[in-house]
Write a protein that binds this DNA or RNA. Structure first.
Lengths: 154, 154
DNA sequence: GATTAATAGTTGCAACTGCAACCAAGTCAA
DNA sequence: TTGACTTGGTTGCAGTTGCAACTATTAATC
């Protein structure tokens, strides 16, 4: 029976995923942070709006699994930065419809292009076989966790 | 030629990695945080010390790519929590040798065991083929980024 | 209609983070 | 030795985060 002392962090899947995620994210961060003054959450919000058009904050939370308070603050910042506008819905005045301004769309187009390039370089280095494989696996992992939180009661 | 507007966050490798990492980490976080009051960095420091015995803060930074200030603060907290001791080296009085106390080793053994279990469940769900494959790929990605930061100059 | 519950979004707070600046100790060279 | 440089580790600060508590609006129940 395995003892806790046998545990090696370097083989722990959540740790490996974190390392890989941080390694790749760090490189791209410069693009949206230094060059456009966006936080990561802001960039993600922008990416969703750029992709899907108008959405509510709640929609963004759903599709990208970001905390609603993070989205709230990101949206506030982007609004004052002139990147998006919000209009409260007539049907339900709790709801706000978010959409990128022309300026916001322009920024999205530029960062999006950098992102495509970045992704392509990354995948080129991994090779086509691995590059296509990794997507499937990662999505599987994400889905796994969504469907049921792992409960370990000692 | 691809335009920035074609960009889809859901296919962006850094994003997928982040989602997968967060999904898996969140589940395990409860174990070390709620149950033992450790931060993630503290848990990682502990895992390294538990695995390798005495190390310096600098060593920990090297092997696990954690910022030195994070390590510094984690170590301080763990010391006041009675989980580790530091003794300044005689040869070089800048250096501090860190090692777990018996209490620290006990906690490590328990969390380590939970971690092994957690990892096993995760891999079981993925299936053996994927589980073994993902390690290789992730390590490849980590190594990629280490050897050379991607530079994209528009 | 009044009461209760649910939902969209915000805010306060305490903790965590990253970066740059810092201190103390050691090295190297003249 | 003195000075310039490196290195191990800490600290200050400004920004980000997560959680719980909050407001405002709508829905449900009686």
């Amino acid at each position: 029976m395995a003892q806790g002392g046998d545990f090696d962090l370097q083989d722990f899947l959540p740790y490996l995923l974190n390392q890989a995620a941080e390694a790749t994210s760090r490189g791209f961060q410069a693009t949206y942070r230094a060059r456009y003054g966006l936080t990561r959450t802001q960039w993600r919000v922008m990416a969703n709006l750029g992709r899907f058009g108008a959405m509510t904050a709640r929609d963004i939370c759903r599709v990208s699994h970001i905390e609603k308070t993070k989205v709230s603050r990101a949206v506030a910042g982007m609004e004052t930065g002139g990147l998006l506008t919000r209009t409260t819905s007539d049907r339900d005045r709790r709801v706000e419809n978010l959409s990128l301004t022309p300026a916001g769309r322009a920024v999205f187009a530029e960062i999006g292009q950098s992102a495509l390039k970045f992704d392509a370089i990354l995948r080129a280095r991994l090779g086509p076989e691995v590059a296509s494989r990794i997507d499937t696996i990662l999505r599987e992992i994400i889905a796994l966790q969504a469907e049921s939180a792992i409960t370990e009661d000692d």
